[in-house]
Design a protein around this nucleic acid. Structure first.
Length: 580
RNA sequence: GCACCCGUAGCUCAGCUGGAUAGAGCGCUGCCCUCCGAAGGCAGAGGCCAGGGGUUCGAAUCCCUUCGGGUGCGCCA
């Protein structure tokens, strides 16, 4: 039920009929034809660029095509009027009944209204968070977690087969640091003085890990050389950290489908296989990199390394995959991991990275392009910083000062719903201000509140009607006489509802969940506007003396509520029934 | 030095992948509560879309370039 795509079909159908009738040459490409809501309401309900798009390939002036097309469109019973305007736009007005019929259609589809099939069941993997398993999640991770999860929900709603995945960076040196840090806490649990040297993780969250180690291994590793306990402690501690991270994510409402381990790639031949595959393509070679110009690197010396020819796929320089000691660089397991995702049959990969990893994008895309033979697109979303504010002042985080804000802190202070919504009020590549006070403010400039308030008002009016003994269940509302919804303000609200399926498709195609949040704000605004017009024009109030009229108006309100719930669902936010 | 992201109203930001006279919130000015929730709504002022070229029927959007801000740049992930 997407009115815009329905009318677009009408337009392309009319173009085909014109071709058959010899009014247009055969073989025209209609892909670029759009049907959109016009920016200016004076331009009707919908506008199409068909005549302008076809003018050049058809070798005809746009206005000539527009006039012919207008005549054909006007014959459709859904169309109230068509006129050519501007450089060749066709402005289309629909019969009010077409708009009104949308209300029962929305109520009939309920939560499925707006669901799309454009994903066509295509398999997409969304990798996000992927924080090192060395400590609790902090605010820096929250935005990536929310954006990734909302994107996954959005894509699923638009017809993709979505897998949410977390890549555990448990293969590098930082998990050894974790193990040594945990060892000190283990000693502490035995009553010894811990030596938290520079470079170890000082956080209190390792104290219970130390105690758990004592419980499990007793005193067996006290005063033993590192070589005897490192692997054991590393596994134990990183496992515990991942448990904590899963709980953190769960408190935000985020659940992963797959956790992949970097460590698990070692020793299985996976890395070797990926590199050999690239070598078979002639993309691996031994060479020496030039030092970066304009940047002074002390102790730079030319070094023979094993390099990936990423420049063959758009990168700026080739990248090393092996260290001079023969070990893999961090890039090598990442290549293997993405190769694994390709081999698991995904049609599309999405990575959510912090903006500080921007320099990594080209090489990763190059690797995926090479290993998938160009078949699997990789989209990398960079998440910009979140700036924290408190009491109108920037809130600076410091590990040492103990003002380190964890995901838990945020969720406990403002709640998961508010956190999630606010994190989606900017596009991913723009920095975002998060003010602990403002996000809880109950006012119009707080979009979370504003949208929830709209939903609460809808529920309020439903309760009101029910108290007046008016049946307002969806089945009854769906057969209300919607022809009574003939006021321009009501039709305008319906038009906004009609945009929802279109918005879902646009947002999903661009991997841009923030669009949903902005749309919801606009929809809420339109509802508030209509609501308040009831102050001056009593005939616009939702509850009327006449039951039939009341049901028609409440059907409209309810349809808005359906869309708000669906939209909030994509954001992972629970709609509220009532403001307190 | 190179690469990527960003530059839109006084401030914070949208702008439907190239469409018509560029939008919203805050702030400012003026209105609206015997009225379903005023925790709101309506109206007004405010713009060289950083600057300059180009592509075409048409550019905030695509390309080139300059300026300004951020991020990153070989054995750390």
């Amino acid at each position: 039920m997407n009115l815009f795509s329905e009318i677009r079909s009408l337009v392309t159908g009319a173009v085909a009929a014109m071709t058959d009738a010899g009014e247009l040459p055969a073989g025209l490409d209609t892909a670029a034809i759009t049907v959109e809501p016009p920016r200016d309401a004076a331009h009707g309900d919908m506008a199409t660029n068909a005549a302008m798009v076809l003018a050049k390939p058809a070798g005809m002036p746009p206005r000539a095509i527009a006039d012919l097309l207008a005549a054909r469109l006007a014959a459709d019973p859904r169309i109230a009027g068509v006129e050519a305007a501007g450089p060749g736009f066709l402005n289309i007005r629909l019969q009010p009944g077409v708009w009104q019929a949308l209300v029962p259609a929305v109520l009939g589809q309920g939560a499925d209204y707006g669901r799309s099939a454009i994903g066509a069941g295509s398999k997409v993997n969304v990798e996000f968070v992927s924080a090192n398993p060395t400590g609790p999640m902090h605010v820096g991770h929250v935005r990536g977690a929310v954006v990734g999860d909302a994107l996954a929900r959005l894509l699923a709603f638009a017809g993709w087969d979505v897998t949410r995945e977390y890549y555990i960076n448990d293969g590098g040196a930082q998990v050894d640091v974790l193990a040594r840090s945990a060892y000190e806490r283990y000693r502490e649990a035995h009553g010894l003085e811990p030596e938290i040297r520079e470079g170890l993780y000082p956080g209190d969250y390792l104290i219970p890990v130390g105690e758990a180690l004592k419980e499990t291994y007793g005193a067996a590793f006290l005063d033993k050389p590192e070589s005897e306990w490192l692997i054991t402690f590393r596994n134990f501690a990183s496992h515990r950290m991942m448990q904590m991270i899963r709980e953190d994510l769960a408190s935000l409402g985020v659940t992963m489908d797959v956790y992949s381990s970097e460590k698990a790639l070692y020793g299985t031949g996976k890395i070797e296989e990926a590199i050999e595959t690239l070598r078979g393509m002639g993309l691996i070679y031994e060479g020496v990199l030039e030092p970066p110009k304009g940047k002074t690197l002390e102790d730079w010396e030319p070094r023979q390394q094993t390099l990936f020819r990423s420049t063959a796929h758009g990168d700026d320089v080739d990248r090393p995959v092996q260290k001079s000691d023969g070990g893999w660089t961090y890039f090598a397991p990442d290549i293997a991991y993405h190769y694994d995702k390709v081999q698991r049959g995904f049609d599309q990969l999405i990575d959510i990275f912090g903006a500080d990893h921007g320099g990594y994008v080209k090489r990763m895309k190059a690797a995926v392009a090479a290993l998938s033979g160009g078949r699997v697109p990789l989209d990398i979303k960079l998440i910009q910083l979140v700036k924290l504010w408190k009491n109108g002042e920037p809130f600076k985080m410091s590990k040492r000062a103990g003002t380190f804000v964890t995901l838990r802190d945020v969720v406990e202070q403002v709640g998961a719903d508010v956190t999630r919504f606010v994190m989606l009020t900017r596009k991913n590549d723009a920095a975002l201000d998060f003010d602990f006070d403002k996000v809880l403010e109950q006012s119009k400039d707080n979009p979370v509140f504003y949208v929830q308030y709209a939903n609460a008002r809808i529920n309020s009016v439903l309760r009101k009607a029910a108290e007046a003994e008016v049946a307002v269940d969806d089945a009854t509302l769906a057969i209300a006489d919607v022809a009574l919804l003939d006021h321009p303000a009501e039709l305008e609200l319906i038009r906004k509802i009609a945009e929802w399926p279109r918005l879902v498709e646009i947002a999903a195609k661009g991997n841009e969940p923030h669009r949903v949040a902005f749309y919801l704000y606009e929809l809420a605004s339109d509802l508030h506007s209509l609501w308040n017009r009831g102050n001056d024009e009593p005939s616009l109030r939702f509850v009327q003396a006449d039951i039939g009229t009341t049901q028609a108006k409440i059907a409209l309100a309810r349809a808005v509520g359906v869309v708000i719930s669906a939209g909030l669902g994509i954001l992972g936010v629970t709609p509220v029934e009532e403001m307190r």
